[in-house]
């Protein structure tokens, strides 16, 4: 555990808490992509199956349980409790265009051809693109509430901080996982446009709106 990894995990935790609180406090999931949230639930479920087979640390296990529970809680709020507020007209990204290539890639490029390993690889690849329906929704409506922007910033920062963690681990621990690193770079690059808008607009007190 190094400072980048810890900061990344805290950013990740903060993101899921911001999202749950936003929906709970406003009693609305307007502006949030249910499709991205569904993909994240699939990501956590397939990645953290090793909770049952491999113990790393209390910290590791608790965080895994929290991420799985939070993702299902978010889905429950969006698709059940506050279903009426779900903006499905703007949430139209075709997730099969992500799921099919990601499945194929996980079967082709993995560390080991075993069920758990392929599911882990699948989750890493899927996570890297899971935010696309949400970014697509923001670009379609042309704006995002500030709280949604904070959520996206925290979620994007998490993998960017993991990149620093991987650089640190490469130099100081000789650790290098090309699958995680390449997917992490892709994931972070997808947020770059958003990061730019967040820093130039939201942090200056303006609403995140895209030029028409």
């Amino acid at each position: 555990m190094n400072i980048f990894r810890l900061a990344g995990d805290i950013a990740h935790l903060l993101a899921v808490i911001i999202l749950l609180l936003k929906i709970w406090k406003s009693r609305s999931c307007a502006g949030i992509s249910g499709r991205s949230q569904l993909l994240f639930a699939i990501v956590y479920t397939t990645r953290y199956l090793d909770l049952l087979t491999n113990f790393v640390s209390i910290y590791n296990s608790v965080m895994k349980v929290v991420f799985i529970a939070a993702s299902y809680a978010t889905l429950y709020l969006m698709y059940m409790k506050f279903k009426a507020t779900y903006d499905h007209n703007h949430d139209t990204f075709r997730i099969e265009f992500l799921l099919i290539p990601v499945t194929a890639l996980a079967l082709l490029v993995n560390h080991e051809f075993s069920v758990l390993e392929i599911l882990w690889t699948f989750s890493i690849y899927l996570e890297s693109v899971a935010i696309l329906p949400q970014l697509f929704m923001v670009s379609k409506t042309g704006e995002a509430e500030s709280i949604t922007s904070h959520y996206l910033f925290a979620l994007g920062s998490y993998r960017a901080l993991y990149l620093l963690n991987w650089i640190y681990r490469y130099y100081f621990e000789g650790f290098f996982d090309p699958i995680a690193v390449v997917a992490g770079v892709v994931q972070t690059v997808l947020y770059c446009d958003f990061f730019y808008l967040y820093i130039t607009k939201v942090l200056k007190g303006k609403k995140l709106s895209l030029p028409a």
Partner: peptide
Amino acid sequence: YGNEHEHDEL
């Protein structure tokens, strides 16, 4: 190659 199969990260 390090311990890539351990997946100690989140």
